[in-house]
């Protein structure tokens, strides 16, 4: 039964693709690397080395609405988000960062990564303005492409995740 599940679903008339059919982790990683070079610094390296995120994390994301609908979510420890903000603001970074600074800079990274992810997806999609806070929840564990990286030794994750719940598994006509 499990083996035939995907084919069965499609036959039932579902045209909704899941993200893993559209983009792979390697592509998301090269997108992230380019965003880092551009925004964080030309000598900044994102290492594909998973590490555990701390308890106090912050996420920024943009929504992509089109043939595939979901969010491109960047998550890091709050301190790492602040460090990224300082890297973006460079010499114009204030002594004490306001929440507003972090929201702006951390959100812009999600915007740039999300724009490239959107362009790599087939068809036309629209991009939302960035949001910052607690990550939207994963609605369908099969509709997620997540990469875990480290920057300056700290974990950063990027999750391209569907906004829609999993489709119901069609009932078996021959139980």
């Amino acid at each position: 039964m499990t083996v035939f599940e995907t084919a069965e679903r499609r036959r039932v008339g579902d045209a909704r693709p899941v993200i893993t059919e559209l983009i792979d982790g390697t592509t998301v990683q090269s997108i992230a690397e380019e965003a880092w070079i551009s925004l964080v610094g030309e000598e900044e390296v994102l290492v594909p080395l998973p590490a555990e995120l701390p308890a106090d994390v912050l996420s920024s994301w943009v929504d992509v609405v089109g043939p595939w609908t979901g969010s491109v979510v960047l998550t890091a420890g709050r301190q790492t988000a602040e460090e990224l903000t300082r890297a973006l603001l460079r010499e114009s970074a204030p002594e004490v960062l306001e929440e507003e600074d972090v929201v702006d800079a951390f959100g812009e990274i999600a915007n740039v990564v999300g724009g490239s992810v959107k362009a790599a997806l087939p068809g036309q999609s629209a991009l939302s303005l960035p949001s910052v806070g607690t990550s939207p929840e994963v609605r369908n564990t099969a509709d997620v492409c997540r990469i875990d990286l480290t920057w300056r030794g700290e974990p950063v994750s990027i999750s391209v995740q569907g906004a829609l719940p999993a489709l119901p598994v069609p009932h078996d006509p021959h139980p």
Partner: peptide, 26 residues
């Protein structure tokens, strides 16, 4: 801009933009 599809660039040029730099850029 981070808008980087082919059709978006064409739209912007048609509207009167002279050049187009896609984020991320150096």
């Amino acid at each position: 801009t981070s808008e980087s599809e082919h059709t978006q660039i064409v739209r912007a040029l048609a509207a009167g933009a002279h050049e187009y730099v896609i984020k991320p850029f150096t």
